[in-house]
């Protein structure tokens, strides 16, 4: 695909990228702390990843290899359009192979494969403020962050355990970063939370509509909030992947007919394909069905 004429590299002008990079440097210096930035209008609507795209544009270089996923998949609309956007405006190489990517932009998942210290992962964030549903005043939440007054977040967990017997937060589960800042990990499943802890890759978060950037530097402690007697636990569907047979990956449930038939498959499409290429099969894979 050829680079489009008349656009600066990666769409944004250099001044805007400098402004975003300055915000990113601040964000890396204070892990988990939200930094305001001058979010620009992007050629796609809010909620489609405008924050993530701006962060990606600011850190992207000509040598980078870009991977974009949405809910773990490389082939969904959002992922395809963002990948093509950067292929056209920056002319960078793109890939679906997690291991080959140097920069991964994601919506709502972290790849199953362990990321390396020469990779960067950029999260698209709809709501950067973890206390937003508990305390309506932004002035007050900023004060709470400044003074590390996070008792209120535990009140929410207390209420969940009281009402449901367990913490009923399945995605965007709040975390403590570097033992100091309470952070919203973006709507990734709680299943992915442990992957953020001591991750070798640099993690960047962009919220376009809310105009906030935050970051987790490599090898930083990220702890999911919990109680001593109700420790944080990840959950996944109890099935194995129908295509590759994996019993440790996060699964999507797909309705396959009108008689209640369901297929559970890895939400990380690259992970699933890599396994199948290595010869793993699941109960519903073409090889297995052919053998019947």
């Amino acid at each position: 695909m050829s680079t489009m004429e008349g656009y600066n590299f990666a769409y944004l002008d250099e001044q805007t990228k400098r402004m975003i990079r300055r915000a990113l440097l601040k964000a890396v210096a204070i892990p988990g702390h939200q930094i305001p930035f001058g979010s620009r209008e992007m050629p796609l609507p809010y909620g489609w990843g405008t924050g993530g795209i701006q962060v990606t544009a600011a850190v992207l270089g000509p040598q980078d290899v870009l991977k974009v996923i949405d809910q773990g998949a490389d082939d969904t609309t959002n992922a395809v359009s963002i990948r093509r956007f950067f292929a056209r405006t920056a002319g960078v190489a793109t890939t679906t192979d997690t291991a080959a990517a140097t920069l991964i932009q994601t919506r709502h998942r972290i790849p199953e494969m362990k990321l390396r210290d020469d990779q960067i992962i950029v999260y698209q964030v709809p709501q950067p403020e973890p206390l937003s549903r508990l305390e309506p005043s932004r002035a007050e939440t900023r004060r709470m962050h400044a003074l590390a007054e996070y008792g209120l977040m535990h009140v929410k967990l207390y209420e969940d355990i009281t009402r449901f017997g367990h913490v009923a937060i399945s995605y965007d589960y709040p975390v403590m970063v570097n033992g100091r800042h309470l952070m919203a990990p973006s709507p990734i499943p709680a299943f992915d939370n442990p992957k953020m802890h001591m991750m070798p890759a640099l993690q960047l978060f962009g919220a376009g509509r809310e105009k906030r950037i935050y970051a987790i530097p490599p090898y930083t402690s990220v702890v999911s909030l919990d109680f001593d007697d109700h420790p944080f636990r990840t959950t996944r569907a109890p099935q194995c992947c129908g295509l590759c047979g994996a019993d440790n990956s996060y699964l999507d449930e797909i309705v396959i007919d009108d008689r209640g038939g369901r297929l559970y498959v890895c939400s990380d499409t690259d992970f699933c394909e890599t396994r199948r290429a290595a010869g793993h099969t699941g109960s519903e894979s073409p090889e297995a069905l052919a053998a019947e």
């Binding site: 996070y150 209120l152 009140v155 207390y158 009281t162 109680f227 001593d228 007697d229 109700h230």
Partner: peptide, 17 residues
């Protein structure tokens, strides 16, 4: 219970029971 417990949690108490 959450109302009464809030000050304890704000002080760093982390045992639900």
């Amino acid at each position: 219970g959450g109302n009464v417990g809030e000050r304890l949690m704000a002080q760093g108490k982390r045992h639900y029971g």
